[in-house]
Amino acid sequence: MNKFKWFNAQNIEEALERTNATVSDAINRGSADSAIIKSGGIELLDFIKEGIIEPAEIINIKSIPGLEGIAFDRTAGLRIGANTTLADIENNGDIKLQYLALHQAVSKAATPQLRNVSTLGGNIAQRTRCWYFRSIDHPCFRKGGTTCFAQNGENQMHAIMNNGTCCSVHASSVATALLAYGATVEITSRGGQKKDVSIDDFFVNPFTDIRRESVLRRGEIITAVNIPAQGKNVKSWYIKQGERASFDWALADVAVVVELSGKRVRKAAIAMGAASPVPVRSKAAEEFITGKDINATTAAEAGQKAMENATPLAKNGYKVDLFKTIVKRALLESV
């Protein structure tokens, strides 16, 4: 681990003033004089420990007052400050009642210790856990290299869709739930300008830009995540499958948010993590289930539909079956 300077930011302005690179910038352009934002620091320190980046300065935003907190309003919906820890989200009663799938996703992410420190902003801004990407010995596309080692290598955890360029999957399983709820990410840039980016647009596919996984640029900071209020008849469920039952990254995870009228599905959002380089919704499954009752047959069919366009690699075909099953089960559980 290299030596670096440490700066405790007192406000957003100050942090944005000092930072000059995102982790992605540092990986691709060299990190020698970079000043990078740190919230919980779990992810950032991993990169530094592995020697993948050697930033000159760390801008601690955890010290900024007011960047954390959860506010819920029945009409306005939910607002979660970027610095809010996953543990605080997990323990929030409103979220548990109104946004069950988010509660489930958060409580299944990482470990209790990590959740005490990890923040929501850091979570959606984290980079992929692809073992080639995380290895200093493998100069892959995403690190400015000329190949994707996983395409013809050890791709058992990798993407089964949209995987032609880089087959890594996004690390955030929390994002799967955020996507199903139609969250928006509030981004503040220098000068205090704010924009709301829908979560669909927040993540960036490798074929769009191989160097990053979100639209965040240096000089920008996530200030909050907003989730619209959900109707009375909205039900949700989240399932994550890792290699272990104890904390583990998702091999496959699914968040389902359905609006019912009676037993019939009026609207459905079915989001899948670890299927594609970024979290994706399955339009095919959503369209299929809309207008139908959820039962063993329709749920199983929806699972099939979700995997219609799967293009598994040599070692990850089993993930297709995993998704079929957990899409089915999440639908059944949601009602």
């Binding site: 073992w131 080639y132 290895s135 010995d137 493998h138 290598g153």
Partner: peptide, 14 residues
């Protein structure tokens, strides 16, 4: 990884 001869799950995360 057969391409590089490198063990790729060298930590307790992977």
């Amino acid at each position: 990884d057969d391409q590089t001869g490198q063990m790729i799950n060298v930590n307790f995360d992977q």
